[in-house]
Nucleic acid binder design. Structure first.
Lengths: 201, 201
DNA sequence: GGCTAAGCGGACCGGGCGGTCAACTTTGTA
DNA sequence: TACAAAGTTGACCGCCCGGTCCGCTTAGCC
């Protein structure tokens, strides 16, 4: 099905550099990042970019696919955690932290072309829904929120923080904590929220 | 100081139509809105736009100024409300509701040019800080948040909702409620949040 | 009604964007 | 080492954007 062509050594090197540069550039400047800048950052010509990815959207899709698969792995491992509430928070923390300007990339559907991306996105979505359901039955979050709510809300901190000139590097995490507290059922409101990494470790 | 030139009748008419069109267009499409589209929507030529406002930024500034002044008036009247927590929530509700894509317009400082805008923005900021302080002393919100936090967080709902294909029209309000709950001090978490308009009415 | 200045509008300009292409270089194999 | 296929490149194209300009229209005063 997926016919992976064999790349020449230099081509593989360039492709890796390109993906790394694109990841950084998209993270910093969002969809505004220009292909020319990405090429320059990768140290290759603009034409080479389009040889590897026929359109800018395809390049973006490759970057997003990486992120989504990483998040999927994390979500999967968190599904086995004992504390469902802490697991959900840790997932939200990791997701919000790593995808800076790419925030809501999983929402934009690719017009039937990138079947693989859509599939990965759907799979991640399922895992998130499961995380949320577990947190709900554990009494850690309200009953009236669903997976989509969590996805949208966990993206909010980075989004708004991107507007302040030079934000303290932990500002987004403070806001995530506030939002997570808002998701708790009435009356359940522990003081600090646990440090990231505490659940899977 | 402010030397308001006298406009000819048709010019005044066009200016009004232009501002209305720009307000709608910016609200719908954010900063991406093009001057040509705004001109078309207003039923005037593109050149006329630039006669009234020398740059696109100036046009945006005029639209933003309108919004800021309206919000300032609201904030001022809410400062006298009995229930400081409800007053803050109502302000956040109104601010988030009316400024769709313009969300964080008050943050972007104009490079010393639009003194009037910067002044209005500073004044609004003061009022918001006062609203927040009152809510804090009333025990309605946590002690560890400030005016900027509230500004950023109240903008979050519209921001994230703009990513979902066709959102239910009240979705942003649900999210605002969640965020507001997250702002409450520990343990204080009433069930429903009051309907908008209940405080000033 | 006639005159003049204010206002109007669309063709036009420069710049940046995503994307193409044909000439050139590199890789890997026999 | 010779050579064909694979890969690279930057000049180039068309498009859209913000902004300019100048010939035309119109409002308002005498």
């Amino acid at each position: 099905m997926t016919e992976e062509r064999v790349l020449r050594a230099d081509a593989a090197r360039n492709r890796a550099a390109l993906l790394a540069a694109a990841t950084e550039e998209f993270a910093e400047r969002g969809l505004e990042a220009s292909v020319a800048d990405i090429a320059r950052r990768a140290g290759i010509g603009k034409g080479t970019v389009f040889r590897h990815f026929p359109t800018k959207d395809d390049l973006l899709a490759a970057v997003v696919l990486d992120r989504i698969e990483a998040l999927s792995a994390l979500a999967g491992s968190l599904l086995g955690a004992a504390d469902a509430g802490a697991a959900l928070l840790e997932f939200m923390d990791a997701a919000a932290g790593r995808q800076q300007q790419l925030d809501l990339s999983f929402l934009r559907e690719s017009g039937a072309v990138n079947a693989r991306l859509d599939e990965a996105r759907a799979s991640l979505f399922e895992s998130i829904v499961a995380l949320v359901e577990r947190a709900k039955t554990a009494g850690a979050v309200r009953a009236d929120v669903d997976g989509m709510d969590v996805i949208l809300l966990m993206c909010a901190p980075n989004h708004v923080v991107s507007f302040v000139p030079d934000p303290s590097p932990e500002l987004w995490r403070r806001y995530l904590g506030i939002i997570f507290d808002g998701l708790r059922p009435e009356g359940a409101r522990p003081l600090p929220h646990p440090a990231p990494g505490a659940v899977t470790a």
